[in-house]
Each structure stands twice: as structure tokens, then as C-alpha cells.
Simulated assay, not measured.
Amino acid sequence: MAVSPPRPKDLALSALRAFEAAGRLGSFALAAAELGVTPGAVTAHVRTLEAALGATLFERDGRGVRLTAAAARAVPEFSTAFDALGAAVQILRAEAAPRVVHIATLPALAQLWLSPRLPALRAAAPEIEISITAMEAPPNLKRTPYDLSLFYGETGQMIATDEIFPVCSPALAAKLHRPEDLSAVTCLTDASWAQDWQIWADAAMPGVHFSPRGPVFSLYALALEEAAGGAGVLMAHRALVATHLAAGALVAPFQQRVTLPRGLRLWSARPMRAGSAVQRAARFLEMAAARI
């Protein structure tokens, strides 16, 4: 009589993903952010995996979590496997919908840089469908369903430098004659780029203590509209204010500009096939950036 022993249960893929992400990033919170779940869900997945294996995967203490020796040996293998799985999924997506291009970018870039250029892209390539997702930090393109990433940073192809300089309404600019005059007016600050004021001031006013006075915004687009409305002076990023400068809604009252080490960068996790929708969209964005 043939004996058919019960097949051992496979480990849950979602639990393995949580384990790999937490191990690679060294944090349950960072793993949760990457996977789009709560830290509690990552914790639950890891505990389920530990129970199924009968082994501890993370050592927990007041400073956080760290991999056990056995788990540390396994994580690189899982990372390679999930990277390969992500690449295969992207190939499948590209083959199934070859004319759809998914772009991940900063909210400010989506609203102030990409949006004004989409009509021209649609006119140049009406058969290409562009999908844009705004997020505060670049995604892991090896694991997420985005074709292109457009962010300020150091990863990817630089398509434009990141120049910063103060801008304001023409009426307010008439009252500003030298950088030191900024101490007497309202300065608008974006929360994500609060350090930019000090970087520019150090270059424009060496040796002068300057601290911007004024509201802090979590949305750069809102701060920009406030500046155009005369509410104060905003530290601008050239790519984000080009349209307003060209229209005369904003002006730069001083000549001094500072180029930051980072740049506006376009990145793809894999080589772009010649003539593909992704490559054509990327080239359009590169040419658009060159005209800033």
C-alpha cells in the first residue's frame, strides 16, 4: 500500500516578505513603510514565521531589533530572490500593458513640474498612458510597480541641477535691495527643505547671522502660491518655479544662486528597451528638463 505523507506547509509569502524587508532595512517601521502596511502587521508576520520555523529570527531590545546569526545568513538570499521576483513582475506588467508608464515622484514635482508638461507629452505620444504617483521618498523600484522614479537626490541620471534662490512677488521684490533685507520680511519655508534657507544665506551673506521668520508649510505648492500672492519670500528650487518666473508671477530679487550637490534625477530599476513607452517617456522628460 502506497504511503502519502502529508506535505509540509509552505511558509507564507507575505511573512517572508516582511522578514526580508525588516532584516534588510533593520527596522520593522521602515519595512512597514516599504510594504505599505503597519508596523504591527510586520511584527505579526514575523511572529507567525518564527512560530512556523520554531526559531527566533530577531533579537529585540530597547534599541530596536537585529537579526539572529541564522536569520542574517538567510536574508541576502531572500533579497536576491525577491529582487528577481520584482523584476519578473515588471516584465509581465510591461508585456501586458506595454503603453502604460508608471512614474513615482515628489508631490511638488508632480504638481509643479510634471503636470504642466503632460499635455505636450500626450500630444507627442498620444498612445502612451502616463500614471503618476506622488510620494515623499523614492520607492524601491526593484519591488514596486513603478517604471520611473523622479526625485531630487543622488540616485539615477541627473536631468537638471538643483539651484535654490529666494523668490517673491514683484511688489515685495521692489522693497528688497540686498540679502540682509530679508530679516525684515516674512520668509516662507517648506518643512522638507528647511535647511535650504541657511545654505543660501551662508553663500549670500557670509558671516551674517540669519534666521528666517515666517510660516512653515508641508506642501511646497501651497508655499509657492502664498509667495506669488505677496505673503512672503520663498526659497525656490529652479525646476519648481520656472513656470511662475516665466509668467512674471514671481521674481528673484537677488543674483545669488546656490547649486546643491543633489540634482533632479530620473531612475529606472532596469534597462529600458529601445523604442518602448518607458524609454520614450524618459527621453521626453530629459529633454523637458534641459529646457528649464
Rank of each mutant, 00 (worst) to 15 (best):
P107F: 06
L266T: 11
L260D: 01
R213I: 12
P5C: 08
Q279E: 12
E129S: 13
R117L: 12
H45P: 05
D61Q: 06
G54C: 08
D181A: 09
A32M: 14
E180Q: 06
A201R: 04
G207F: 15
N140F: 02
S79E: 05
C168Y: 05
R262V: 13
L150I: 06
D162W: 12
L16P: 00
L240I: 03
L16H: 00
R60Q: 01
C187R: 11
L57M: 05
L57K: 00
H45K: 13
A81V: 07
T38F: 07
V167M: 01
A44P: 03
P76D: 10
D196A: 10
L219S: 11
L234T: 03
P116G: 06
E127P: 05
P212F: 11
A84N: 12
V42Q: 06
L112Q: 01
L222V: 15
L109M: 03
S218H: 09
H237S: 04
R99E: 06
A29G: 08
R24N: 05
R99V: 03
L49Y: 00
T189A: 08
V46I: 15
V89W: 13
I128G: 02
P76E: 10
C187H: 03
S14L: 14
V167S: 00
D190Y: 08
A288E: 07
A18L: 03
G54L: 07
L25G: 04
M272P: 04
T155Q: 04
L141E: 00
A269I: 10
S79R: 13
P206H: 12
G54P: 04
A22M: 05
E163F: 15
M135S: 04
Q279D: 04
D190A: 05
R93F: 05
A84F: 09
A29H: 14
R265T: 07
S183R: 15
I91Y: 05
A137P: 00
Q255H: 00
F82Y: 06
